[in-house]
Amino acid sequence: MRNPWGWIALTGFSLLFFAFIYAPLLVIIGYSFNANPVNMMIWEGFTLDWYAGLFGLSDRATGVGNRAAYIESTDQMLAALRTSLTVAVFTTTISTVIGTATAIALARYRFRGRGFYNGFLMLPMMMPDIVLGIGLLIFFVTLGMQLSLVTIIIGHCTFLTSYVFIIVQARIAGLDPALEEASADLGASEWTTLRKVLLPQLAPGIMGGALLAFVISMDDLVITYFISGVGDTTLPVFIFGMIRRGVKPEINAIATLIILASVIIAALGLWLRSRKTD
């Protein structure tokens, strides 16, 4: 940069930009420890009550002071977390298998319709959530399928398969096909080459795709909102419902835990990506 003042101004702007991104998250974390139950924006001292309350360990209640309501919502929250984890595990497994198979097919075979598949697989990612959500809702209801965990898992797989596909495809593009050619020349069957030569090299990409699928599945709100049954609320849908009913300090505590979990997962993802595997 020829002009030092220009660089200083740019640096200032950029740091403000990062402050803008992170300040809201820090606000939630800070206020999750605020003892003031009525106006949570006015600081009234440090407390862990809201965290204790989340796990049914605190007598302190917000507003009306109804302990029974708390424990009920604690159970509901933990049930929602369980639902989210169950959905995410199944979704990740299914979409990773399908997405990886698709990526291998498109990268290693020449066939008619290859270009079509490449374009078509972008659509589930680009389709607005709400359109896919109501499409699946009408579809399941018209077929007479009960909305349940299964419908949520199906819904998540429709778009997460594409995400896994993209990540794995990027990994394949960076591979040296000579290894597979060598394997074939040395007499290994196509299936053996695929399993013993290609798949191990793809492992980091597959892990990355799976991680991304897991994170997005855990966070999906819109599609789940439309196709979850009455008893199968996921964590984001549960929090959305809580926010709609009114703001309570416990939400700050859940939110802080979620932020913490996502930082850990993101760090794990970064570590996976930076690890030298080949």
């Binding site: 809201p24 998250l25 606000v27 939630i28 206020y31 949570m40 924006m41 994170v215 966070d219 709100l221 984001p236 929090i239 959305f240 926010i243 703001v247 939400i251 700050n252 939110a255 979620i258 932020i259 996502s262 930082v263 997962i265 993101a266 993802g269």
Partner: peptide, 14 residues
């Protein structure tokens, strides 16, 4: 990587 609904909730508070 962090929850969409949580990030919006932060703005609600602010």
């Amino acid at each position: 990587f962090s929850s969409l609904i949580v990030r919006l909730y932060a703005w609600l508070l602010i």
